[in-house]
């Protein structure tokens, strides 16, 4: 699960830097869904996720011509940029929330607890969004984005032990808040 080996995106990036439209399309097919998923799960907002993904790739296009092989993998770089943009937005939300107390949204189980499909998905998304941002980031990077512990810890600028602590606390909190859905996670 370590971040080792050559960069699988290197050849495509070279093509993007030359202005090869096929390389642009392939790189977007390969990486845009990951960036969108990351931003959506970090921000719990489809519009903001799209904005973050767009800004991330606009920055990638600027880097493409001068990309130096042998440094950080492009996927890692994308994650770093996207996470920074997500945190910018989370900070703005916090500032707004401090100025204007939000309405209280009940994310607990509905009275008729039999949830299916989209409802279930929304419950999980709400539970994830209710976690402290660093715990959510750890879970999204390791579980959803499939990054190894070393790579995720490096992205978050923490030790592997600290990452494990964030993952453990986050998963325990999710397990508690989704306890009523345990039977539906079969």
């Amino acid at each position: 699960m370590a971040a080792e080996g050559s960069d699988p995106d290197e050849a495509l990036l070279t093509g993007v830097g030359r202005g090869d439209p096929a390389a642009v399309r392939q790189l977007l097919d390969r990486r845009l869904p990951r960036v969108l998923a990351l931003a959506r799960r970090m921000l719990n907002d489809a519009g903001e996720a799209e904005d973050v993904a767009q800004e991330t790739f606009l920055r990638a296009w600027k880097q493409a011509r001068s990309w130096r092989p042998g440094g950080a993998k492009f996927d890692t770089w994308l994650h770093r940029v996207a996470l920074n943009l997500c945190y910018d937005r989370l900070r703005k939300r916090r500032d707004v929330a401090m100025a204007e107390p939000p309405e209280q949204v009940d994310t607990g189980p509905a009275p008729d607890a039999g949830l299916l499909g989209a409802d279930l998905s929304r419950r999980v998304e709400a539970a994830l969004a209710a976690l402290p941002a660093r715990q959510r980031e750890a879970i999204v990077l390791c579980h959803h984005q499939g990054l190894g512990n070393i790579e995720a810890a490096a992205l978050m600028s923490v030790s592997v032990e600290a990452l494990e602590s964030l993952l453990g606390r986050g998963r325990r909190a999710l397990k508690a808040s989704l306890a009523d859905l345990a039977g539906q996670g079969r």
Binding site: P33, L36, A37, R40, S121, L128, I139, H144
Partner: peptide
């Protein structure tokens, strides 16, 4: 359950 957290298509 975590897998049910929605992703997003472009």
């Amino acid at each position: 359950l975590l897998d049910l957290a929605p992703a997003q298509s472009a």
